[in-house]
């Protein structure tokens, strides 16, 4: 177990470093990386333009930039945002609570509905068609439209995130539950007259818990992705909105800082769920 944890930490750190480098490289190669809107200001002289361009020279060589950036990041300094002219750590710290709250409520809502409805589907198989229709409709509604409806209806943004995450979580959970409910030992237990509650908890949900934990990790990633869209459309000042603004403004220090920070959060969430899943599986193996 200890080796597994160590391996997981090392692979997470490597993933994180590579993700940051990939983000920096992509942004560096993006068209319009080294231009400023103020360059179109008809008053700006050639000398001022030259100085503006020189100020960005340090970001041209992406390898040396990233090397310096990682060194500073290890000391807790994520640099200074070029578009906001403030330290990146301050920006993230200011906006992180908004996103964490959004994601927590969104995930809680989506998971609660998904698990409850998936169990209801197992308990009442006759309504499966209705659940199928509901899932199909929700999957086909673009997340952008959900965000617009939330905005116009002045509903909580977390509701939008829950609606966006729900159909996939429901499909996965229902698939796992159905699989478990159809196993030989589950059918035998049911035939012996086990109560519905005990059957669902012991033979349907509990055996699915390692897989559900793994999906929980993935849903955290998906929630961060959804947060970008929802925060942008609903004008919620979280890190998702900040990430998009950083990309649009070609703000290299901010985007790399965001990538590393959000990457660390999601990688940690995945590592925790993976290890928990591993622990549960091993525990059962010993039993």
């Amino acid at each position: 177990m200890r080796n597994a944890i160590l391996r997981r930490i090392l692979s997470s750190l490597a993933t994180l470093a590579l993700t940051g480098l990939a983000a920096a490289t992509l942004l560096r190669l993006a068209p319009g990386f080294d231009v400023e809107v103020s360059e179109l200001d008809g008053r700006t002289s050639a000398e001022t333009l030259r100085q503006m361009r020189e100020a960005r020279a340090g970001e041209q060589d992406i390898v040396s930039f990233y090397g310096r950036y990682l060194r500073d990041a290890l000391q807790g300094d994520l640099g200074r945002s070029r578009s906001y002219e403030v330290p990146v750590t301050g920006l993230i710290a200011e906006r992180l609570p908004v996103t964490l709250k959004l994601i927590a409520w969104g995930l809680a809502g989506a998971w609660a509905c998904a698990l409850l409805l998936a169990l209801a589907n197992i308990a009442f198989p006759k309504v499966e068609l209705g659940f199928n229709l509901l899932t199909a409709v929700m999957l086909s509604v673009p997340a952008g439209l959900v965000a617009l409806l939330i905005l116009m209806g002045q509903r909580p943004v977390a509701l939008g995130l829950a609606i966006a995450l729900f159909p996939k979580l429901f499909s996965y959970s229902r698939g796992l539950f159905k699989q478990n409910a159809a196993t030989g030992y589950a059918l035998a237990a049911r035939a012996r007259g086990l109560s519905a509650a005990s059957f669902l908890s012991r033979y349907v949900v509990w055996p699915a818990s390692p897989a559900l934990l793994a999906i929980l990790g993935l849903s955290v990633n998906a929630a961060f992705g959804g947060a970008i869209l929802l925060e942008t459309i609903c004008d919620l000042p979280g890190v998702g909105q900040l990430a998009l603004q950083a990309a649009l403004a070609r703000d290299l220090p901010l985007l790399v800082g965001m990538t590393l920070f959000v990457g660390a959060l999601t990688v940690s969430a995945n590592a925790v769920t993976d290890l928990a899943s591993l622990y549960l599986t091993r525990g059962r193996g010993r039993a």
């Binding site: 068209p31 319009g32 990386f33 231009v35 809107v37 360059e39 179109l40 649009l248 070609r250």
Partner: peptide, 13 residues
């Protein structure tokens, strides 16, 4: 149609 930084790069660089 291009996003603004891309457009700027085309017309100034």
């Amino acid at each position: 149609t291009l996003d603004f930084p891309s457009l700027l790069e085309r017309i100034t660089r």
